[in-house]
Amino acid sequence: MSTKFQILFLCTGNSARSILAEFLLRKIAPDRFDVFSAGASPKPAPHRLALQVLRDHYKIDVSEARSKSWSEYQGKRFDFVITLCDNAKESCPVWPGQPIIAHWPSPDPAEFEGGDTEKERAFWQVAQQIRRRLELLASLPFEKLDSLRLEAAMKDIGAREALDLDQSVATI
């Protein structure tokens, strides 16, 4: 049996997008990845709507979810580091071992303005975008790709499907 890939999802607050990515990938490909998330300036706790969407829409146990600083993983070797917001991309530290770094931008659902129902839809929309990207990641033939092709594939996943929350939530 081969070793699992080590993957880290980064965002500024580690309260929404990176938490969604961490728990969704744990569900999608638990045998292929050890999954972590962190933030540059972590919030005190994950956003309640991120946890609600994971529980209600994906039936994921989020009892272990917590916001973490990326300094918690200083010195840890990762195979992949994926930033989910522009701030994390710009301030991302150097990680040991030369991991493949990709940027998969998603809008911050915590910044969406509207009623409770619309806010939950915004979190669900972002979760769906992240889930689709994670399914593409999990389906990559890692054993057949050299590091340059793998890096290109990771960047291509992040370039797919831009999401405008104001427009997508309004159309649901």
Rank of each mutant, 00 (worst) to 15 (best):
E111M: 12
N14Y: 01
A138K: 06
T117A: 15
E151A: 15
G115V: 04
A138D: 11
P99Q: 03
Q52S: 12
D116S: 14
S106K: 00
L134D: 01
R66C: 08
A159D: 14
R132W: 09
R66K: 09
E22C: 11
K27N: 08
Q125R: 13
S139H: 08
L84D: 06
E161D: 15
D86P: 00
G97I: 00
I101K: 10
P107D: 12
R32N: 11
I60P: 07
S106W: 00
Y73S: 06
A16I: 05
L24H: 04
R55A: 14
S106N: 13
I101A: 09
R131G: 04
E90M: 07
Q52N: 10
T3K: 13
A21C: 09
L163G: 08
K144N: 10
M1C: 09
H103W: 12
N87T: 15
D116W: 10
F112K: 05
H103L: 11
P42Y: 00
L10Q: 00
E118K: 10
H47P: 00
R121S: 04
S18L: 03
W95Q: 03
L134C: 06
W70H: 07
R131N: 12
E22D: 12
M1H: 11
I130E: 04
R121N: 06
R26H: 12
H103D: 07
K76P: 05
V35K: 01
A88Y: 01
E22A: 11
A38L: 07
A162Q: 11
A110F: 04
F5Q: 11
E113I: 12
L49T: 04
N14A: 10
I82R: 00
D86R: 14
A159R: 14
H47W: 05
L51T: 02
E22T: 07
G75E: 12
W104C: 02
S2A: 10
A65N: 06
A50P: 01
G115W: 07
R132A: 11
P96C: 10
F33R: 02
Y73V: 03
L8K: 02
G158M: 02
R133G: 08
H47R: 04
S37L: 02
V126I: 12
D166W: 09
L54E: 06
T117C: 07
L140F: 07
Q129V: 09
S2L: 14
I60G: 01
S18H: 01
D146Y: 03
R32A: 10
L25C: 07
L25M: 12
F5T: 03
L145E: 06
L165M: 11
K89F: 13
L137K: 02
V81K: 00
I82S: 01
V94A: 13
A162C: 11
D166G: 15
R121V: 00
V94F: 10
S106P: 00
S67T: 03
P96I: 03
A88M: 04
K27A: 10
